[in-house]
Design a binder for these strands. Structure first.
Lengths: 217, 217
DNA sequence: ATCTTACCCTTACACCGTAAGATTGCAAGC
DNA sequence: GCTTGCAATCTTACGGTGTAAGGGTAAGAT
């Protein structure tokens, strides 16, 4: 009543939706609540987005587009590495939205453009198309899994069961108890880097090699 | 009307729910439809599960419990490798349910028991607790990402946008076009193995080592 | 014969996405 | 100034959802 209501727009709706999701979580996100946050009725949103799914598409697009593409002047391997960190940073920027991003279809214009760009980057650091494709895929797996776990892992996912007590873990899970400190947030960076470097190193070398390098002749 | 209605039970509900989800997908899964599939009313389910979320918990538990634990007599590294494949097999056994498994909370009794078992397995193949914890984590990332992608990736996730045309890809995405064949289903095994072996090799060696192995003495 | 309990159903409520259409406000043409 | 037209917004309503509350019924215990 004090301030005049600001006009609706696709941009404003997207912003409000992102904020609402990060504030209350994806399951709580509804067109009616978004309308309330925007100061309008739910149906007004449909003038800008033909369906809730279209709006969610726009949010995912926004998230993907927010991934910073590393400087083309950098060495290929370094570019891929930085892109991996940029992807992870995106997930941490939209932690409640991210699980949707991870599962979202990628064969959309934005999706394939992104894939093409990344493939180009990876290709420069590998010997041939096949290595590039497989490295892209393997690193992609790792990134998606890490981002899922860091944003929705262990204690955050949905479940009706009450969390297990520290007591239970202390008595029944000696290994988990000893490992717990390496699972804490301050350790995430190091663990993430460890796996990423292993994949990058293996992917940019000609062949993984079993046991130790056995010269073929 | 022909056959007498079979009595309800938690087991029968779980079975029907798993079948329904794999047949119609998670978003289509509702208590009413499950009731219809069971030949009872939706509310009858609540006599065995206090909420839909509790039922979903049971489904996830079932999936986790279906992961085959490798023979303890095998060498540690081989056990971990087989467990990785067993996890992946679980995802492919419940492809429509799996995205929920990936995001589901793990600090439940079944969850921590599973983690403890896996940690024990990994620990036998590593030098210390820290290596075990980090390898567990990194491989877990990779597994979750790979399983998500193989069950819900590229063309399967939700989206309102129409899939991009082959024409668009042909004209705008030369790299994606050349890489496409390595993304096909027959190539999944090889790509999966490639990344997994890279992580296992790096995790079971004392230190990732930069450039090449530099003996400490 | 009565009571208890387990099982299943009926009804109802608040919430959801959205189809259909009414209403408002403003800008352009006369 | 008045009319027309269109874009933005709201109203109403429908069929779906999860589930709270309570009713009925049949089998077994006492």
């Amino acid at each position: 009543m004090a301030r005049k209501r600001e006009a609706l727009s696709a941009e404003r709706i997207v912003q409000a939706a992102l904020a609402l999701i990060e504030r209350e979580g994806l399951p709580e996100f509804s067109t009616r609540k978004l309308g309330a946050a925007l100061g309008c009725e739910a149906m007004s949103i449909y003038h800008f987005f033909p369906s809730k799914q279209h709006l969610l598409d726009a949010l995912v697009d926004r998230a993907i587009a927010s991934i910073e593409i590393p400087d083309a002047a950098l060495p290929p391997l370094e570019r891929v590495r930085r892109l991996a960190y940029a992807y992870r940073a995106m997930a941490h920027r939209y932690p409640r939205l991210y699980p949707l991003v991870a599962v979202h279809r990628l064969n959309t214009p934005t999706g394939v453009r992104f894939i093409e760009a990344v493939l180009g980057m990876v290709r420069e650091g590998t010997a041939d198309d096949e290595s590039a494709a497989r490295l892209f895929r393997a690193v992609g797996y790792y990134l998606a899994g890490a981002a899922i776990d860091e944003t929705a892992g262990y204690a955050k996912g949905p479940s009706a069961a009450e969390p297990v007590s520290g007591d239970f873990i202390e008595k029944q899970c000696p290994l988990l108890l000893r490992s717990a400190k390496y699972f804490q947030r301050p350790e995430w960076d190091k663990t993430f880097a460890l796996g990423l470097e292993a994949l990058l190193a293996a992917g940019t070398r000609p062949v993984p090699g079993r046991r130790r390098a056995k010269p073929r002749r």
